[in-house]
Amino acid sequence: MAHARHLLLLFVLPVFLALKRYMPPSHKGIGEPCKEHLECQSGCCAVNSLNPQKFCTAQTFFLHCLSWQKPTGHSCLDHGECQSSCCVTNSNSALRFCMPRTIFYQCLQWRKPNGALCSDHSECRSKCCILLTEVSPPRCIPRSGILAQCLPL
């Protein structure tokens, strides 16, 4: 039994020393600041808050490195920045914000209320953008008629 242990040590020790020689000397632990994945023991260097500084983070069960995503209400530029994967405008301004999805998992764009100036049906909540008079600019109006059509008032 003791002889088997000595043989095992004779085999394992050179392999361990060889592996140690190839490992970078400064592997950082989770939570330590980093710039590249190679710096971290976990192999993941990612943003984990609104702070743009990257930190060593744990890998997922599927060995992926996930960056932190913004919660509802934070400004965003695209869907990938948000936890909800929904980055839309919430007013007339061009600014976009992370918004929750509907119960049907839809990401709904904000639309203009009735009476607001518009240039296309898709801009209005009612999906109805019409010229009210020949000289006035088009405005969002409620749908009307038996089949709720987009008809002039």
Rank of each mutant, 00 (worst) to 15 (best):
M1K: 10
M1Y: 07
A2F: 12
A2S: 06
R5H: 08
R5P: 02
L8S: 08
L8A: 13
L9N: 09
L9S: 08
F11Q: 02
P14G: 03
V15F: 12
V15R: 02
V15W: 07
F16E: 03
A18W: 09
A18P: 01
A18C: 09
L19K: 04
L19I: 07
K20T: 14
K20P: 00
R21C: 11
R21T: 13
R21L: 14
Y22N: 07
P24N: 09
P25H: 05
S26C: 03
H27P: 07
K28N: 03
G29W: 10
G31E: 09
G31F: 12
E36G: 04
L38K: 05
L38S: 04
E39T: 07
C40I: 05
C40T: 03
Q41W: 03
S42M: 09
S42T: 15
S42C: 08
G43T: 07
P52Y: 11
Q53S: 12
Q53V: 13
K54Y: 06
F55T: 02
C56F: 02
T57W: 01
A58I: 06
F61S: 07
F61I: 08
F62A: 15
F62C: 11
L63A: 07
H64E: 14
K70W: 01
T72I: 14
G73W: 01
G73N: 03
H74R: 07
S75G: 08
L77I: 09
L77Y: 02
D78P: 01
G80K: 10
G80T: 10
E81N: 04
E81S: 06
E81Y: 01
E81K: 01
C82K: 00
S84T: 15
S84A: 14
C86P: 00
C87M: 02
C87K: 00
C87L: 03
V88C: 02
V88H: 03
T89K: 14
T89Q: 15
T89A: 15
S91T: 14
S91E: 08
S91C: 10
S93W: 10
L95H: 13
M99H: 04
M99C: 04
M99R: 07
T102L: 12
F104A: 15
F104V: 13
F104Y: 15
Y105H: 13
L108N: 13
Q109A: 14
Q109E: 15
R111V: 04
K112E: 02
P113H: 10
P113C: 12
P113G: 04
P113A: 09
P113E: 08
N114V: 15
L117I: 07
C118H: 01
S119C: 03
H121E: 04
S122L: 13
E123P: 01
R125Q: 12
R125T: 06
S126Q: 05
C128E: 00
C129P: 01
C129G: 01
I130K: 11
L132R: 08
L132M: 08
T133I: 07
V135G: 03
P137S: 10
P138F: 03
R139H: 04
R143N: 06
R143Y: 05
S144K: 06
S144F: 00
G145Y: 05
G145V: 11
Q149A: 15
P152A: 06
P152H: 09
L153Y: 06
